[in-house]
Design a protein around this nucleic acid. Structure first.
Lengths: 216, 216, 216, 216
DNA sequence: AATGAATGAGGCTTCATTCAT
DNA sequence: CATGAATGAAGCCTCATTCAT
């Protein structure tokens, strides 16, 4: 990854340019897909945003599908990395879960366009062929969910979570988080970030909407 | 709403046939859109499922967009009606909210294909032109959300809900419900209905994932 | 094939039209491919010649390749049929060979455009993927050549042909015939049919360019 | 024709390099065109085979068409030269014809890839614009055929050939030769050279497939 | 001269929509 | 009303050619 120190400079002028262009295309694609959705976004839209000709896109990505896939992969890598760190930073399961919650919100604010895209395309589409590349993104998300479920299970054993089936916890967690993000990405598009609200959402996840029942 | 008793009898042979055909087309459209998504579903797919010719579709619906819209409108009407009844059946805000939760689950199990469709197309797409017909479905959903928010606000005043901002309550509620439904519609497609699980989800909404803090 | 006498008339209006249109497209394709070659002929050229829109071609043929293939198949069927009859009409191997020679010339004059096409595309291209459909046309031609070779072998045994290896006879025969046809199809495009010349060509095949060596 | 001895020495280092590169490109083009055919061969294919960049091809050849043309010209020069020598080496018309036959076979075995190309592209394509450069290759081949025809005419006058119209002799000769070569270039691609077979083919040209008729 | 990234016209194909029967 | 063949605009992709380095 960062191992070409000496020679990289000789090969680099071109290579760096190339990498930058590739990134510009991915960014343009992110914007276009996010705005129009995968189907409606035209390769020419993307090319124009990236300020390249259509043909140039095809020097970097074999097809529209492939471009989409690489975009997802790139983002997934970033998120997996940051989430991994966040998870490690938490000691107890609850801490881990909490870190996941807020890190995903951080990620949302850093990659808003991409989350719009995810919301549009991911929700029920994880099993769509388009999203199933070699390293299957759906599977990646599934794996992440499994991991998350493990924390819930651990948390239950350790008495941090109530004794509800872990996959219900998971569903509630994901639901609250994803819906909150979807709302911010669409309906309240221009609302600024509001830490208090975020805290409230997590609080709702942990303690619910109602007052605690008497005995317990 | 329901019946035009007097006039229907004179024209009815024809009218009833026509209405039946129209319904068959809507059903076919529901199935096709749900399976392929809006963009990928072809008018011919729909025609075939409905056992009509393509041209015939156009006698009933001006365009693919319009067909989609009318499908959504039809379903929205059904849901609005049943939800209205459920709401009326509840006395307190909490009861209303609870009824909404379970009635929407009932609706999911009665209109699975349609919910798949909603999950695919709705989440972030409510503002998409396609969905914005004359009577704006997005607006309808918004109106429903406003109403729901009112119940939360009332519930807060009446001490049934904790004193969290109503729109956070709303977001948590919608998130948990929608995500649960999305999961059932996609990942666990063949799982049978599980009332205990549904109850658990609602319980998570009301009392959260963690044990109640001591003092409160 | 010819079994739908009674009912065919009711279904036919459309079906016959359809068959006619299909044939018009095949004819247009024959002309276009023959004039420009497969690669350079555009689907739009074909559509224009057939006086249809491009899209209409695709109701009948799945792709340009497929259209080409069906064209070849259609012609191959015609030729196989007529050649079969010609072969049967000959008693001795020599007669069969002679009949093949002249029937192929008949076929040339009846399907000039197609022969131009064959000359362009067939010569060395029989093994090209494009030409290899389900019923492999290259294989069909090969099979025909095998059959022809059998007649040469039989003719050798029966003393009608000189004792040269049959595949050399075959090569000479095909060479003379195909080259003659190629010439007529291209260089002397407007020359009228000349039976004397045809006879001379066959005579050259049978007795060669030089006078017979003395003793033999 | 052959050498610019004086001037070549001053510029030669560069010039020789340049000439060598040009030749490498022509060879690469020969290979690519021969394998894929003119249309399907990409300039990049050629560049890669030649181990140059695409742009460099354009320093030597103005266009793909031009490159093709120059390739043909180069080969045509070689062949014309060798055929000229072969012709001169023959005393009588028959000897000349015989020499042409075998020299063209020699040329085939020395330039197999090119003959594959010829077979693919030449047969009926001599009148194609692509092949019609300034010095019109079709015309060159025509001129050669005219010359060949002259030998046949002379041979007829001198009693070496039977009294058939010279252009029929020509057609038979070319047909046998070209078809034999096409066969070797495609179907029996890996067959080794077989002098006996070659002799048999020429023998078939001269004395035909059948036994001589009694009286003559 | 050499490079190879960038260009963009042009081809194939799809599919919503129309219309003659 | 029903039909389904026909239409043609629009999208994806390829590749000959150019040009800044």
């Amino acid at each position: 990854m960062s191992s070409d120190t000496s020679k990289s400079k000789s090969l680099s002028r071109r290579e760096r340019e190339s990498a930058r262009h590739r990134q510009e295309m991915l960014d343009a694609a992110e914007a276009a897909f996010s705005e129009y959705g995968f189907e409606k976004a035209r390769m020419e839209d993307i090319a124009q945003r990236a300020e390249f000709a259509v043909g140039t896109l095809y020097r970097f990505f074999a097809s529209k599908d492939q471009l989409y896939l690489e975009l997802l992969r790139e983002k997934a890598d970033i998120m997996e990395k940051r989430l991994g760190e966040a998870i490690n930073a938490g000691k107890t399961p609850l801490e881990k879960v909490r870190n996941i919650f807020f890190t995903r919100l951080d990620l949302f604010w850093d990659h808003k366009a991409f989350f719009r895209l995810m919301v549009q395309e991911t929700e029920g589409s994880l099993h769509k062929p388009r999203l199933c590349g070699d390293e299957n993104l759906a599977a990646r998300y599934q794996r992440f969910l499994e991991q998350l479920k493990d924390y819930f299970e651990a948390g239950i054993r350790e008495g941090e979570f109530r004794d509800v089936s872990a996959h219900c916890l998971l569903a509630a967690f994901e639901g609250i988080l994803r819906n909150y993000v979807a709302r911010l990405g669409y309906l309240d598009q221009d609302a600024p970030r509001d830490p208090a609200e975020e805290e409230a959402m997590f609080e709702l996840f942990s303690h619910g909407a109602c007052f605690a029942p008497k005995s317990q």
